[in-house]
């Protein structure tokens, strides 16, 4: 497929983007955060969000989930407003790594939340990659549904996303495409 990617949108933590242009790629960097990439192949619209559930220190788990539900809802509602149908939505999930040894596995909590949410809403999961102990750079072409991830080189201390101006690129290999 020859396709010129004209614009690249970086989805930062707490954000979501919905697009209906073929030449746009959505990209993000994930540690224990999770990004849901969702599209409606017939309505030709798709998008990505990027969330990290707040920890349970003093909060109830319902409060933490409320935050995640909100970011998932924003993405799904954004798609529906562009003509998508709920039953046609398909999702790929990325992230949820265990990036810091010894702490509670926030990555797994995020991944589990995202999977449960999609199951509850009847949105099928068609691909993606969750877990592990390394960060990822993810690219998603919302109209074709193509996704590519590059595992960040084995630095377990990686936590926060790098600002969009200097995206780290893995020097060698580790790039996997998810169709």
């Amino acid at each position: 497929m020859t396709l010129v990617t004209k614009s690249r949108i970086t989805v930062m933590r707490g954000e979501y983007h919905v697009v209906d242009r073929e030449d746009v790629v959505l990209t993000t960097i994930l540690g224990s955060c999770v990004a849901a990439c969702i599209r409606d192949p017939f309505a030709r619209t798709g998008g990505m969000n990027h969330f990290l559930l707040p920890g349970n220190n003093g909060r109830s788990s319902l409060d933490a989930q409320s935050y995640g539900v909100h970011l998932m809802e924003l993405l799904v509602n954004g798609l529906l407003q562009r003509g998508a149908h709920r039953h046609r939505l398909e999702a790929k999930l990325f992230g949820g790594a265990r990036t810091i040894e010894g702490l509670s596995d926030i990555g797994a909590m995020n991944a589990e939340f995202a999977e449960t949410f999609l199951r509850n809403e009847g949105i099928s999961i068609v691909g993606g990659d969750l877990g592990g102990d390394r960060g990822r750079r993810v690219e998603y072409w919302p109209l074709s549904g193509r996704a590519r991830q590059v595992m960040l080189s084995g630095d377990k201390g990686f936590v926060a996303p790098v600002p969009p101006k200097q995206p780290p690129v893995a020097p060698s290999g580790g790039s996997v495409e998810f169709f």
Binding site: S60, Q65, V69, E121
Partner: peptide
């Protein structure tokens, strides 16, 4: 319209 959201609110009300 979001099932998970309804579940969360229901759980909170029960609490």
């Amino acid at each position: 319209d979001t099932t998970t959201s309804r579940m969360l609110i229901t759980d909170a009300l029960q609490e």
